[in-house]
Design a protein around this nucleic acid. Structure first.
Lengths: 249, 249
DNA sequence: TGATGGTCTTGATCTCGATCAATTACAGGA
DNA sequence: TCCTGTAATTGATCGAGATCAAGACCATCA
């Protein structure tokens, strides 16, 4: 799985707020910061709370400041599939569309930095860097969706779990830097049920495979949520992905 | 499945070539046409031929003029999953990246309208409409990928086949207009094996479910590839998707 | 201290789709 | 017309993961 470097997040560090716009535009920074500030507001959600319902109007776009949010599609009979997982710095929403076709729910407590949609759309027209950056981020998301499709369509339950753990280990802890050191530890941001929705499995199968990986010494569990991976390459070998080179980023 | 209107393709009708740039920019049309023409060339591929290998350099972007191309990811042991299906007017490639992480192969004979990548990238910087249009198209692709993920993760074999047939019926024949009339007919652009790769099934299961739908009168088969759907709503009812409203576009 | 409820684990059984194995259909070429 | 090879169908069997069903674990609260 040759991972190329991810595009920088749309919003990045700036001094006076937990979310920052500096990366939007290197050239006309001050001006854009001002415009963005004018249409910006924060919203917080508790774990389990729904942020947007499928089909609802959505009059904002924004990015995740902290916490984890999930995009989920549901069939009439209740079968559910997660189709997106938003971690801090990920972008939510579609500037040119006022509704979504999936539910957005907070998996943990979530802080969202929102921008009113219409003004943001106008900003995009005026400042091409914003739409170029958004394009890069969307293409990254599409690449991730394609990896995910391979997982859903062709991987075994054990491979799915191992793949999920490497994804969380990569994105959750050390920011984008693939740990070359052997041991990694992190907290799972999802319940077993949400993991099942992510992986196209049942929660029982998730639990069984977690136990199996633990029994085989691939992972250690401290409590339900804290995972210790004594040998990251051992875990990678369980994913079914190419383990060769590819450790860019 | 409330389908919203798709963004217009990047390239549209113009008089002297099968692919056309007029839609790129309504304002500075002539100028952009000229720039695009300067970096444009055509390539043709035979059915089965590989267009780009995973990991290869890719020094062009472009769109499909005719035929069908498939993006496929392959695991070391040979398991394959299709992760994209490009029909005429669909865009291929990533202007700012020079390699891909999936194979691109021609499912039928394919004509591609290509633009050299670097100059195209420059054009994007100069003409914001191009990146805005590309962003819309990429977001549409992401929406499609998410529907696909629901299919892969949660649908039964029969539902997968029915869903695939509706997708081909919608996009393949009547350009984007959902047929409200009962009867629809079309040719399958893929072999049973390619359909299996699309759906996360084996080719035997695809064949069996096609036979089952035929036996149940949901579809008729003329030869191996030509499908007649006597009652489109009957087929839709087999997809597991919402059949209500949603028939926009 | 026990009661309550949510999350997770584990066991027993069943089923859908995978796998293995022929067989059929059909197009192209000598 | 008969080969030959590829695509597709159909049958028999197997197994991974779903389903159904108990329990275990643990935090909160009375």
């Amino acid at each position: 799985m040759p991972k190329a470097a991810l595009a920088a997040p749309l919003l990045q560090d700036c001094s006076n707020c937990p979310i920052r716009h500096r990366a939007v535009c290197a050239r006309c920074e001050a001006d854009e910061l001002e415009q963005l500030d004018a249409i910006k507001y924060y919203r917080t959600f508790e774990a389990g709370q729904t942020i947007v319902w499928s089909g609802d109007q959505m009059d904002f776009v924004g990015s995740v400041v902290s916490g984890v949010a999930a995009l989920t599609q549901t069939m009439e009979d209740g079968r559910r599939q997660m189709v997106g997982l938003l971690l801090p710095s990920d972008f939510l929403g579609r500037p040119s569309r006022d509704s979504v076709t999936y539910d957005v729910t907070a998996s943990t407590d979530v802080v969202l930095c929102c921008f009113r949609r219409k003004p943001f759309l106008k900003l995009m027209e005026d400042t091409p860097h914003v739409s170029q950056r958004l394009l890069e981020m969307t293409l990254d998301e599409l690449d991730a969706a394609r990896e995910w499709m391979l997982l859903l369509g062709r991987k075994t339950a054990r491979e799915k779990i191992a793949s999920f753990l490497t994804i969380i280990a990569r994105r959750g802890t050390t920011a984008n830097v693939v740990p070359l050191k052997a041991e990694v530890a992190f907290d799972l941001p999802l319940t077993r049920e949400a993991m099942a929705d992510y992986l196209g499995l049942t929660l029982e199968t998730v639990s069984r495979q977690m136990s199996a990986l633990k029994r085989d010494g691939v992972i250690e569990l401290q409590g339900k949520r804290h995972v210790v991976v004594p040998d990251f390459h051992r875990l990678m070998a369980e994913t079914g992905d190419d383990t060769d080179g590819g450790l860019v980023t």
